[in-house]
Structure formats: structure tokens, C-alpha cells
């Protein structure tokens, strides 16, 4: 009986503590005005005019998209993951007839480790129920085959930057997020879902949808997940 009482108290304490952390995380998101730049509630922009107003990535499905450990670190020191900014088109300067990336707005928030953990806890509750979990199968894969598919056949490097070797600068396009660190950053099930149908997540995203088999998706997500 004593044990039962102790266990009940522990459970109640844990639940209360978790609930408090989520409440704190939500309060921090509100007080730091994350919603001024990030869309915190769906649906995603459905017109180009609305996409152009986007200042920072949508966060209303952050719990489906990101790995929590990465979020905790990133929120303490946000960096630019999209070399040309959130919506590349808003950050282009023209020199002669050539486009270059102009000055990029920076995320103003830099939270303490404790606050970042609370915010990450809250963000992880923002999920999209339509995303199937457990679809990605981590497995051995041949990097050469993944590179042939992603570079030669699909030219993912036209828009995404692949990480450079041994700290060297990466190679690739700048209009979409860098692949450097993507394995630490993103939930592989979300990567699978997004590559399979980008417009499901972002109806006007400038990434084109390709027809991939499950085996091709698994190969790509295994490769991307290895980029940590």
C-alpha cells in the first residue's frame, strides 16, 4: 500500500512537472514573439502571395519534423540553415544580370539551455497526425548509389547544398535548406514524407515532387540521416 502511494505521488509529480514545462515552453514562445516570424498554427500558406510573406519556417508541425535534441541546441544559438533565407526569392540582389544572395534577416531569439529545453518540449507537441511514424527503416546503404540517385539522376544539389568534406565548404544550390547536419536536425519519417510529397506540407513550396519508390526513398533518407 505504501509503495502504491509513493508511486502515485511520483506519477502525479512527474505529470505536474511535465505539464508545467509545456506551459513554460508555450509561455516562452509567446513572450519571445516567435509567432511574429514563425507560423505557429496551420494550415500552411496556400498562395504565392502568402508564401512571400513568410519570414521564418512554419513551426506548427515542428514535433513531426525535428529531432528534439537538435532543437534544444539550435534554439540556444540559431544559425542560417537556408543559405538564401527562408523564402529565397525575398533575399535576392541583382548585380548586372546576375542574381546573388543579399543580406539575410537573423533570428533574434537566443534562449538559455533551460528555456530552450522547455520550448523544445512544447514544440515537440506540435505534430501532424497525418504523418505515418515508423516508415523509415534505418539500414546499411551504398553511399555511391545514393549519390547517383540524388546528384546525377535527380540533381538535388541544384537547390540543396551537400556538406563539404573535413570542414570544407559544401557544394550545391542555395534556394533550399542545406543538407549539412540534416541527419541530426530532422526526423527521418518526416524526411521520407516530405520528399515523397513536398506539397502535402507546403502547398506552394518550390521543390518539385518526384515519383520515387519506397526503396529509393529509404536510400535517400538513410543517406541524409548519415549527414550529422
Amino acid at each position: 500500500m505504501k509503495r502504491l502511494i509513493v508511486l502515485s505521488c511520483l506519477l502525479a509529480f512527474t505529470m505536474a512537472f511535465t505539464g508545467q514545462a509545456l506551459a513554460d515552453g508555450k509561455a516562452l514562445v509567446d513572450s519571445n514573439k516567435c509567432g511574429d516570424c514563425h507560423q505557429m498554427a496551420g494550415p500552411a500558406a496556400a498562395t504565392i502571395a502568402d508564401v512571400m510573406k513568410r519570414k521564418a519556417p512554419d513551426l506548427f508541425y515542428a514535433g513531426s519534423k525535428f529531432n528534439k535534441e537538435w532543437l534544444v541546441g539550435y534554439i540556444q544559438n540559431p544559425t542560417q540553415l537556408r543559405p538564401a533565407g527562408t523564402v529565397y526569392r525575398n533575399n535576392i540582389k541583382t548585380e548586372g544580370d546576375k542574381d546573388i544572395v543579399g543580406d539575410l534577416p537573423k533570428c533574434a531569439s537566443k534562449l538559455s539551455a533551460g528555456d530552450a529545453a522547455a520550448v523544445a518540449d512544447y514544440l515537440m507537441t506540435l505534430t501532424d497526425a497525418s504523418m505515418a511514424a515508423g516508415v523509415f527503416k534505418q539500414d546499411k546503404f551504398k553511399k555511391a548509389r545514393a549519390k547517383i540517385l540524388m546528384k546525377k539522376k535527380e540533381a538535388c544539389d541544384a537547390c540543396h547544398m551537400f556538406p563539404g568534406k573535413k570542414g570544407k565548404p559544401g557544394k550545391g544550390g542555395v534556394s533550399c535548406p542545406t543538407f549539412a547536419g540534416i541527419g541530426a536536425r530532422l526526423n527521418p519519417d518526416w524526411m521520407y514524407s516530405f520528399i515523397k510529397h513536398p506539397q502535402h506540407w507546403d502547398p506552394k513550396v518550390w521543390m518539385a515532387k518526384r515519383e520515387f519508390t519506397d526503396a529509393q526513398l529509404q536510400l535517400m533518407v538513410n543517406f541524409l540521416s548519415s549527414m550529422k
Binding site: 529565397y88 526569392r89 535576392i92 546576375k98 542574381d99 541544384a158 544550390g173 534556394s175
Partner: peptide, 23 residues
């Protein structure tokens, strides 16, 4: 054009978009 094409073909359409150096 502004959203989908400019990333490679450029704002002036001359083929000198921000991704062009990587192609």
C-alpha cells in the same frame, strides 16, 4: 515564374539565378 523559375533562371530570366553557379 517569380517563385519556381527564378531560383535557377534568375530574376531577369537570363539563366543567372542564385542556384546557377552550382549547376
Amino acid at each position: 515564374y517569380n517563385l519556381f523559375c527564378v531560383q535557377c533562371h534568375g530574376t531577369k530570366g537570363t539563366g543567372k539565378g542564385v542556384n546557377a553557379p552550382a549547376l
